[in-house]
């Protein structure tokens, strides 16, 4: 059992009893192992259903847009930056949300675990020392959590919440030797045709279910560009140009707003790593405008501001 769980339930039940909030958004135990679905709790009796694990991959900031009434939400470092983003963009009011910060040591990738274990998994248990015990088909294996982390969690440098009303635990240490953009640099180093092949291959399995869009907290347009019919900018089939257009535009909409929470990748039924698109934009925002999403709500986002010193190398 995770050490945070008692504290999480205690905070949730206190806030509900005091009627400080109408609802608490957190995670529950899923019916399948390695998936923690989101849940909303409205009464103090139900807080026992709340849980915490290393499978809380979903970004709960997604449920805050245009919400009515006062709510409390559990937020990891990346979720918290998404909430700051929402505040900056006017999608949620700071006074309407109680942010319960959860310092995060990274979430695990369920596909990695399944691949290593091989058989069907019945149970995954985490020990406090970072050992993960996987059980299934009458056998049991032990792994290190650090080997099973999601790719985005491996390169995360904002593990601790940036804006919170309460913290569940003390902030966690952030390793200094993280190479944040190793993946992007690897792609950048390739020739242009190889890059095209790489991305063509990356999206070749996409079934256009839009799970990545739905899981993404930055995607809240009333009518998404893929649902527009007049004019129709993106074809609805699974033709490669259409799928590629969808992924390019989806990524572009998150430019300067994506917090690399990895919810899109975790939600994808086909296991597509669409972070290959968004991570590049994140890197560009940092390189060109020294901007990182969700660290402050006092500054306007990179693509919303103009200064005479902005780089314009690609202008004639």
């Amino acid at each position: 059992m995770h050490t945070y769980i008692d504290k999480i339930r205690e905070i949730a039940s206190r806030l509900l009893k005091e009627e400080a909030v109408e609802m608490v958004i957190g995670y529950q135990e899923g019916t399948l192992p390695m998936i923690s679905p989101p849940m909303s709790v409205r009464s103090a009796e139900d807080v026992e259903k709340l849980t915490w694990s290393s499978h809380c991959c979903i970004n709960l900031a997604n449920y805050l847009t245009d919400i009515k009434g006062k709510v409390a939400v559990f937020a990891k470092g990346c979720d918290c930056r998404s909430i700051v983003n929402h505040i900056a963009e006017g999608k949620v009011k700071r006074e309407d949300v109680v942010i319960i910060g959860v310092p995060c040591n990274g979430m695990m990738e369920r596909r990695t675990i399944s691949n290593i274990f091989g058989d069907e998994i019945e149970e995954v248990v985490e020990e406090a020392d970072g050992t993960v015990i996987v059980r299934g088909k009458g056998r049991e294996e032990k792994y290190q959590k650090s080997d099973l982390l999601r790719q985005c969690c491996r390169v995360c440098v904002h593990k601790n919440p940036v804006l919170y009303d309460e913290l569940v635990a003390d902030p966690v240490a952030i390793p200094e030797d993280i190479q944040r953009y190793k993946e992007v640099e690897k792609i950048e180093a390739r020739e242009i045709d190889k890059r095209w092949k790489f991305f063509e291959n990356l999206i070749s399995t996409c079934i256009r279910c839009y799970a990545c869009r739905d899981a993404c907290p930055t995607c809240y347009c009333p009518t998404c560009f893929v649902d527009e019919a007049q004019p129709q900018w993106v074809g609805k089939g699974d033709d490669e140009p259409d799928v590629m257009t969808f992924h390019i535009l989806r990524a572009f909409h998150t430019a300067g707003r994506c917090t690399d929470c990895g919810a899109c990748v975790s939600a994808c039924p086909m296991g597509i790593n669409m972070r290959a698109f968004t991570k590049k934009l994140e890197k560009d925002c940092l390189d060109l405008w020294d901007w990182e999403a969700g660290l402050t709500s006092d500054m306007r986002p990179a693509l919303e501001t103009f200064t005479p010193s902005d780089p314009e190398d690609n202008f004639k």
């Binding site: 890059r195 095209w196 990524a251 004639k316």
Partner: peptide, 29 residues
């Protein structure tokens, strides 16, 4: 971004021309 995924950079170009600069327009075209 498009260049990153493998579209040649020559395919998408940007420029800034004043309405009085017809010669620059010709040059850029």
């Amino acid at each position: 971004m498009l260049t990153h995924i493998g579209i040649e950079p020559e395919r998408l170009q940007f420029s800034w021309i004043s309405s009085a600069e017809s010669t620059k327009f010709i040059d850029v075209v």
